[in-house]
Design a protein around this nucleic acid. Structure first.
Length: 427
RNA sequence: GGAGAGAUGGCUGAGUGGUCGAAAGCGCUCCCCUGCUAAGGGAGUAAGGGCUAAUACCCCUUCGAGGGUUCGAAUCCCUCUCUCUCCGCCA
């Protein structure tokens, strides 16, 4: 959420910032509601004050054995007036809250103009795009050729957008995950966390998947439904929900490997081939909680941590900064890492690293005690994939293929493959 | 699944209708005292919100959550959630 004080005091600035995303903030309508809220709240609170002091008086009189009947008459209709006032206040506050939950985060000044993916700006490239002296194929053909990737079985079991992997290929994904977790915990200072994969709606409100993006989520039935996490960002970020952290415990750096579940509603016909876009995929996620002054640097560092994985895997990639129109709802600034996929002859997103400033922290009431003010203040939260394991697997398969359809194991993963150096067809 | 106990401030823990945001202790902060240390004395120490230029006053809300009774609820009633203990079951 955006600071409601800012919405009141500088509605024009907010409107202009959000307009760059293509979001229309009706500042005038908000101001009208806000004016009503102010009057109502002041009235309601003064009525409550009146009630409290009368109640005190009555108590006092009673204890002194005085007749309280006249006092009771005096407050007779106070309760009704208060009830009415409270009800109106509550409804107007709910209206304001609904509007506020709907507003995306304010953008960092660095975010370039633009309406769509096309307008994202490339910042840098790393690595050489591999050149093959044979016709490179995509991971689907590679997997089928090796007999280790089985979309038919997956669709018989679960329908479209699921995968079954066998043997060394299944292990290769596990190796990637293991490798990433090791690098982040041992070298980058992240604490490994095991988290729930089913969460309640309040957690999703905190990270801002709800209320706006319910259709992207899988939800269980029942009185208090659970949602399957679309990313470990949800449970990891909510670790600090309603907490006040000591300044010396910052920055917090958490990493978790989890499966992720996305309904992919609205992506019909998109990436239907292969395992680029699945209902279920594995991901290693980084989350940081930092003091506000540190969040810009933290985003650069976090992005670097994700890049480190690609570099060690020897995968060519580029870094793009998302333009205003493509930026995620809760993010103030996002870098995407796009890995080269020979099968698509293109760069494809494999990581997305975002700084959410205090947007999620405000929804979660996640704070730290600022030693300078002595007061609890909102944290800044960041998250990034490092990496999406399913897509990393695709990238390794396609970039490390040979003319016979075998897959060489990147050096850093060999120890995680029990020494296996090549995944080859059974002879 | 059965039986029972409980949920109060950073922690322990009192409080069964009235000035209780809440005793006491611990912890923490500051001050005093004291060659140093230890001990001792004093003061302060929740969060959210409103108003406001203000992190100054003042006011409102919050004792697991949500309802109810009442002029007034931490305290009484109802519903729910969670935690703990014992038994059973299970990975």
């Amino acid at each position: 959420m955006i600071d409601s004080k800012l919405l009141r005091q500088s509605p024009a600035d907010v409107k202009a910032n959000l307009a760059r995303r293509g979001f229309t903030f009706d500042a005038a309508a908000y101001a009208v509601l806000e004016e009503q809220r102010k009057t109502l709240q002041v009235d309601t609170e003064s009525l409550r004050n009146e009630r409290n002091s009368s109640a005190r008086q009555i108590g006092k009189a009673k204890s002194q054995g005085e007749d309280v009947a006249p006092l009771l008459v005096a407050v007779k209709d106070l309760g009704d007036r208060l009830d009415a006032s409270e009800a109106r206040l509550q409804s107007i506050q709910a209206e304001l809250h609904t509007i506020e939950l709907d507003l995306p985060n304010l953008m960092h000044d660095d975010v370039p103009e633009g309406n769509s993916e096309e307008d994202n700006r490339e910042l840098r490239r790393w690595g050489d795009v591999p050149e093959f002296d044979f016709k490179a194929v995509d991971h689907v053909d590679l997997g089928a050729g090796l007999g280790l990737l089985d979309f038919d079985a997956a669709s018989r079991i679960s329908g479209s957008r699921f995968t079954v992997m066998h043997g060394p290929l299944a292990r290769l994904q596990r190796a990637l995950i293991q490798f990433m977790l090791d690098v982040h915990t041992i070298e980058h200072g992240y604490q490994e966390v095991y988290v729930p994969y089913l969460v309640q709606e309040q957690a999703l409100f905190g990270t801002s998947q709800l209320p706006k993006f319910e259709e992207d989520l899988f939800k269980t039935s029942g009185d208090t439904p659970y949602y399957l996490i679309p990313t470990a960002e949800v449970p990891l970020t909510n670790l600090v929900r309603e907490q006040i952290l000591d300044a010396d415990s910052l920055p917090r750096r958490y990493v978790a490997h989890t499966p992720c579940f996305r309904s992919e509603a609205g992506s019909y016909g998109k990436d239907t081939r292969g395992m680029i876009r699945q209902h279920q995929f594995e991901k290693v996620e980084l989350v940081q909680m930092v003091a506000p002054a540190d969040s810009n640097d933290a985003l650069e560092a976090l992005t670097g941590h994700a890049e480190q994985i690609l570099q060690r895997l020897g995968l060519a990639y580029r870094v793009v900064i998302l333009c205003a129109g493509d930026l995620g709802f809760g993010s103030s600034k996002t870098y995407d890492l796009e890995v080269w996929l020979p099968g698509q002859n293109n760069y494809r997103e494999i990581s997305s690293c975002s700084c959410c400033t205090d947007f999620q922290a405000r929804r979660m009431q996640a704070r730290w005690r600022n030693p300078e003010s002595g007061r609890p203040e909102l944290l800044h939260t960041l998250n990034g994939s490092a990496l999406a394991a399913g897509r990393a697997l695709v990238a390794v398969m396609e970039n490390y293929q040979d003319k016979d359809g075998n897959i060489r194991i990147p050096d850093v993963l060999v120890p995680y493959m029990n020494g296996l150096e090549v995944i080859s067809k059974k002879v």
